[in-house]
Amino acid sequence: MEYLVYRSEALVTPESPECQSIVTISHLKNTLAGITGFLHAEDGVFIQYIEGPAEPLWQLYNRLHSDDRHRNLELLGHGVISRPRFKKWRLGYSQTEIASFRDFMGEVSAEKSLKDASCAEAVYFLMGASVRIDLGIGSSL
């Protein structure tokens, strides 16, 4: 099982029907492909962690490059994992109301912006956002 984390420039707002369709359609497709993960949308930025079998994972990543709802994909990191981090999330989703990536980065390092976040910082943030939803502190779509 492999994982990857990317950041991209969002061309749709978190509340838009286009963004909601990402979550709805990804739930179905990810279930069929054995992929799990978590997507966060905030202030013109998508940050996503996805995990699963290598072939469907990289096929998905390649398709993301042609998705016109975002641009400038930047792979922050990838690797091999022994067990999934987001097992119950076919595609978890959060936006600023659940947790702010900008605030998180300010707390981690006042010198870094969203565009300077590392793979580890992105993963820690997304895991924290998913826990907030699990605890009922925020809700996903």
Rank of each mutant, 00 (worst) to 15 (best):
Lys29Asn: 13
Ser21Ala: 15
Asp116Glu: 11
Glu55Arg: 13
Ser118Trp: 02
Ser113Pro: 02
Leu76Lys: 12
Glu15His: 10
Ile25Ser: 14
Ile50Met: 07
Leu64Lys: 01
Leu28His: 06
Gly106Ile: 08
Ser26Arg: 04
Gly77Pro: 00
Glu97Ile: 03
Tyr93Asn: 14
Ser21His: 12
Thr31His: 12
Ala33Asp: 12
Ile98Ala: 15
Asp68Trp: 00
Leu28Trp: 08
Glu74Lys: 13
Ala122Gln: 05
Glu2Asp: 10
Ala122Gly: 11
Leu57Cys: 05
Pro53Cys: 09
Arg7Ser: 12
Ser100Lys: 05
Glu51Asn: 03
Ile50Ala: 12
Lys29Ser: 10
Leu135Thr: 11
Ser16Ala: 09
Asp67Gly: 03
Met127Ser: 11
Leu4Ala: 06
Leu39Trp: 06
Glu15Phe: 01
Ala117His: 05
Asp43Pro: 00
Ser82Trp: 05
Ser118Gln: 05
Gly92Leu: 04
Leu126Gln: 09
Arg83Met: 11
Arg85Lys: 14
Pro53Met: 10
Ala10Thr: 10
Asp67Asn: 07
Ser139Ile: 13
Glu97Thr: 14
Ile137Arg: 14
Gly136Asn: 03
Thr13Val: 04
Leu114Thr: 05
Arg71Phe: 04
Lys87Ser: 13
Ala41Arg: 08
Ser130Gly: 10
Phe86Asp: 12
Met1His: 06
Ser118Tyr: 03
Ile22Gly: 02
Leu114Trp: 01
Lys115Phe: 07
Leu57Pro: 02
Glu42Ile: 00
Glu18Trp: 00
Gln20Cys: 10
Cys119Asp: 11
Arg63Glu: 08
Ser109His: 03
Met1Cys: 03
Ala117Gln: 06
Asp43Phe: 01
Gly128His: 04
Ile35Ala: 09
Ser109Cys: 08
Trp58Tyr: 07
Glu121Gln: 12
Leu75Ile: 13
Asn62Pro: 00
Ile50Thr: 08
Thr36Asn: 15
Ser16His: 04
Phe38Pro: 01
Leu91Ile: 15
Gln48Glu: 06
Gly52Gln: 05
Glu55Ile: 00
Gln95Gly: 14
Gly138Arg: 11
Asp67Ser: 03
Val45Ser: 05
Glu97Asp: 13
Asn30Ser: 07
Asp43Leu: 04
Ser130Trp: 01
Gly92Cys: 03
Met127Ile: 09
Phe125Glu: 07
Thr96Leu: 14
Gln48Lys: 00
His78Tyr: 12
Ala99Arg: 12
Val123Asn: 06
Gly37Val: 04
Gly106Glu: 12
Asp103Thr: 10
